[in-house]
Amino acid sequence: MKLTLRVWRQKNADAEGAMSTYQVDGISPDMSFLEMLDTLNEELILKGEEPVAFDHDCREGICGACSLVINGDAHGPERTTTCQLHMRSFKDGDTIDIEPWRAAAFPVIKDLVVDRSAFDRIIQAGGYISVPTGSAPDAHATPVPKPDADFAFEHAECIGCGACVAACPNGAAMLFTSAKVNHLNVLPQGAPERETRVLDMVAQMDEEGFGGCTLAGECATACPKGIPLTSITGMNKEWLRATRKAAKK
């Protein structure tokens, strides 16, 4: 396959960026999108040019490191991570636009790499449970009803990639935050911090400069893990409940 790539190039956080055009040839439809970019980078290095910086780690769709807005879609046209997107989703001769995640809370560091540490701080604010250390407890020590376990698991699938923020017209982090709130708040292990978790995580989310939710639904469409839009509804419910409880104290 022969492709024309238009890639966002930006030297550093303070530099002005712009789209640059590159041609790549000899791309196999079985390559992943990142392997295609590796091919481009090898050519750039041979030519003595600066390779395109992009994030990646596991390359098997589980770590959440890879990003990229491809032709306007976070993680590209398929519902998966960029590392699991294959070139067979494109046609020979296509022009592909590649841009970084765009949000005030995710500043560009270089080229296609953005700083997602705002997510870490949201998790630090309440995305954990407190447990005594020591040997692992018996697996059946705390029974969890099957529907709750399934619900928690569905939300635990979030890999923190940030596609939801990138896709949201308001740069909101509601889907990411709600995935963690729902995951932990439904479990008995998460019960002791149920109220502070949602209040603190939402406050941190606001503090980081993410936008608010207008229920556009773009986040859930972009999410490679299928976190549903109703996850946000669930978090709103938890937030209202926690606020009412805090008011009674």
Binding site: R6, M19, G72, E99, A104, N170, G171
Partner: peptide
Amino acid sequence: RDIRARPSKYVHK
């Protein structure tokens, strides 16, 4: 707030 949270638009609209 929403508009400020998304200051740069995507080139590919």
